[in-house]
Structure formats: C-alpha cells, structure tokens
C-alpha cells in the first residue's frame, strides 16, 4: 500500500532487466542461476531488511558492514580458537550486536545526535575491534559449516535453494510482516514522518529509536553469520563498503531516503536487481566486475530522480483534492 508506485517501478525494472539478460544469455532464466543469485546475496538481503526499517524511520546505519566483518571474525575465533560450540557462539554474537545497535540508538536519542555521525563512529569502532581480534583470515572447519553448506532444497530445473537463501527469505518475509502489519511497523513510519509530531502523538520515540537500531544491528549480526557460512572463514576486512550497497538496495527499492515511505519487498527487489547486474557481468565474462558499481550508480541516480518526480506529482493533486473534499 504505502510506497506502492515506486515498488511497482522497481519490480518492472527487475522483470525487464531479467528479460533482457535472458534474451542475451538464455541460461540466465533457470532456477540454477536464480538459486545462486539468492545464495550470493543472502547476507545483503538480510542487512538490507534491517536498513529499510532504519531509513523509513528517518535514520541511517553506516555500521552494518563493520558489524558483519566483526561477526565473521568473532564467530571464526570463537569456534576455531576458543573452542566455543558454534550455536553458543552465534547466540553470543547476536546478543553482542543487538546490544551494540541498542547503544547506538540510545546515543542518537539521548544526545539528539545525527544518526549519520553516531553510526559512522559505530562503523569505525566495530571495524577496529575486528582488527584487534585478528588481522588475518581465519578459516572455519567446524562440521556444522559443511552440513549447512551442503544443505539445499532442490528446485525444479536443478536449482538449489540453499540454507542461507532460505534464512534470507524467511527474514525478508518476517521483516515485511513486522513493518506492514504491526504497531511497531506503524511507529517506524510515524518516526519517519516527523519525530517531533510522533512524540506529541504519544509514540515512545526514544524506545522506538533504540529498538530500530537494535534490529538493524541484530540483522547485521545474522548477516555476518550467514556471510561466514558463505565464505567458511572469518576475516576482519570482509564486507567493507557493504553498508553502501545496502543503502543503494533500499533506495532502488523505492524507500525514501528522507524517511516515512518505503517497503521491505521493494528492498528485496533492489537486492535482486544488484544481484542480477552482477550475474550478467559474470555471464559476459569480459566485463570488469566494477561495472556492477557503475550500473548500480546509474540506477540509483535514476531512482532518486524518479522519486523526486513522484513526490512533486503527489504534491499537485493534493491541492485539488483539498478543495474537493470540503
């Protein structure tokens, strides 16, 4: 409902892009490629879901890439060096990342600081901490890792829906339900509309801010675990710059960077578009993978221009309706 037109446009871009790619490389239109696309972008889909909440609420979270990096290092060290059972290591890191997000949210609210600055600090902090733990890549050999990596649902056509792709899909769907169907979700939109007004209307703005950043960091933690499954290693330099890919996916998905409007489904489509571009480049074989960044940049630009256009359009009929309704 909210933000439907931009989402529709994102969907059209995705379908058209997919069709174009399929015309050039018929193999792309197979469950195998789609399955890989979901697997390769699983961690991105998960963080982007959290980022959607943050951006709709009028904030931004620059720390997610570093939280992913820290998580991979922590998990690898805990399992391989400190002998912690994997499940316990996961619980510990999720608790840690949630606390980290909650702390950033609290700082933003209590000291009334711009989220940009606070999460930028969080980004340096988390990245620095992961270097403190270890500067080199730590391979993970625990048996859970091979079990999970081998697990997959067979799709018709030979594609594999891997465990981490399933985790991502569950989180995307859960996120969409949370955003669109619950009181918490409505409050997220309210905060994005105007913090001051939401507060006057009785929304507990402070608690909401803490919860939103907590959710974002928690999902970044999950994304980190997923990333460690994906690479079977922990490395302090992993996921550098992912926060920017994430923001790009959210904006391409039709979420207003200024807050108040957007959807998780749109974000998911935005992630798929980025994945599609990457897949195309892989198929082509001659293009540098940096073309992904260029294509993403062009798309971002187009979407922001489009949104401004839509916002301007939405303003005009408002005046007409205003009269008609009285």
């Amino acid at each position: 409902m909210k933000g439907l037109p931009p989402v529709l446009i994102t969907a059209i871009v995705l379908v058209a892009g997919f069709a174009l790619c399929a015309v050039q490389f018929p193999n792309i239109a197979s469950t195998r490629v789609v399955g890989n696309l979901l697997t390769d972008n699983a961690f991105l889909g998960i963080v982007a879901t959290g980022m959607t909440f943050v951006i709709i609420s009028g904030g931004i979270d620059l720390s997610v890439g570093s939280v992913i990096g820290f998580t991979t290092v922590f998990v690898a060290l805990a399992i391989e060096r400190w002998g912690v059972p994997p499940l316990l290591a996961f619980v510990a890191i999720l608790a840690l990342s949630a606390a980290f997000g909650a702390a950033m949210g609290a700082v933003i609210h209590v000291f009334d600081l711009p989220p940009f600055i606070v999460t930028l600090a969080g980004m340096f902090l988390a990245r620095g901490a992961s270097f403190l733990l270890s500067t080199e890549s730590v391979p993970i050999t625990a048996p859970v890792y091979s079990t999970v990596s081998d697990f997959a649902l067979r799709m018709p056509g030979g594609g594999r829906l891997t465990a981490i792709a399933i985790i991502m899909l569950v989180i995307v769907i859960g996120g969409a339900l949370l955003l669109h169907l619950t009181r918490f979700g409505a409050n997220v939109y309210a905060l994005g509309g105007s913090r001051a007004t939401a507060s006057l209307m009785g929304v507990a703005v402070g608690k909401m801010t803490v919860k939103i950043y907590m959710l974002s960091s928690l999902l970044a933690g999950i994304a980190g675990i997923v990333f460690s499954f994906y690479t079977s290693a922990g490395y302090s330099l992993s996921a550098v710059g992912v926060e920017l890919d994430t923001i790009a996916a959210v904006v391409i998905g039709g979420t207003l960077l200024t807050g108040g409007q957007g959807s998780v489904i749109g974000t998911f489509l935005g992630v798929l578009i980025q994945g599609l571009i990457q897949t195309y480049i892989n198929f082509d074989g001659t293009l540098s993978s940096w073309w992904t960044k260029i294509a993403t940049g062009v798309l971002l630009f187009a979407f922001i221009a489009l949104q401004q256009g839509l916002v301007a359009l939405a303003r005009r009929p408002a005046a007409k309706r205003a009269g008609a309704a009285t």
């Binding site: 409505a186 409050n187 939109y189 309210a190 105007s194 007004t197 939401a198 209307m201 929304v203």
Partner: peptide
C-alpha cells in the same frame, strides 16, 4: 497542540489510531 500537523505520510486511519491500533 497548536502546531497540530499529524503525520501526512500515514493513512488517516493510522493517524487516528497510532500507537493504539
């Protein structure tokens, strides 16, 4: 309050029932 302005980005119904849906 004097500067009423509810939340223009939410539906009328959400505005009426915000935080008590």
């Amino acid at each position: 309050y004097q500067e009423v302005n509810l939340l223009p980005n939410l539906s009328v119904a959400q505005n009426l029932f915000l935080d008590r849906q």
